[in-house]
């Protein structure tokens, strides 16, 4: 996976977090995932496709992290994952893939994106668009971890 195809997603995560919650996420070393199970308790997934590029991106959060992000975004805490937390996960995923889409368009690789799908539960499985290796980028915000998963094919 070329770094020029990863950077738009990295930039979009930084921009989404800095603008929506006022915190710059700290990025850890990426790795390749060898199972379909994700590490988070709640995950937003969006697929995208066009003639030359297709794939999917997931943002997966442990409960503690997403409740913190909810509080920072909405200005009030919640005790557990509820419909509004689901909604924020979907919207954040949408913002990240939408931000990346703009950069890919400037690279001559426009694509259309699906509406976000949100899945929750411990050890839930994320089905990406392709069976090729999935890149995982670990993050933390104020010490709270989350990950972004990227599955991508460019012709």
């Amino acid at each position: 996976m070329k770094i020029e195809y990863i950077n738009p997603f990295l930039n979009a995560v930084d921009n989404a977090m800095e603008t929506m919650i006022g915190v710059s996420p700290v990025r850890d070393k990426p790795y390749i995932k060898d199972s379909r199970t994700t590490t988070g308790d709640i995950t937003g997934v969006i697929g995208f496709a066009e003639k030359r590029i297709s794939g999917s991106v997931a943002l997966s959060f442990p409960t503690k992290t997403i409740l913190k992000i909810y509080e920072l975004m909405m200005g009030a805490p919640v005790d557990e994952i509820n419909n509004e937390v689901d909604d924020i996960v979907g919207e954040l995923t949408n913002i990240v893939v939408g931000g990346a889409k703009k950069e890919f368009s400037e690279l001559g690789l426009p694509f259309n994106i699906s509406l976000p799908l949100v899945v929750s539960g411990t050890n839930h499985v994320i089905k990406h668009k392709h069976d090729n290796p999935v890149m995982v980028i670990p993050y933390s915000v104020e010490g709270n971890k989350f990950i972004m998963e990227i599955s991508l094919m460019v012709k």
Binding site: T19, N94, I95, V97, G99, K102, S105
Partner: peptide, 27 residues
């Protein structure tokens, strides 16, 4: 107010009568 921030999308929206455009995320 949308994540669709690519130039082609902005132009399309304006062409169809949108007066102004805000790209998510926004402050």
């Amino acid at each position: 107010i949308t994540t669709e921030g690519a130039k082609t999308e902005v132009v399309e929206a304006l062409k169809h009568g949108v007066n102004n455009y805000v790209v998510k995320p926004f402050d």
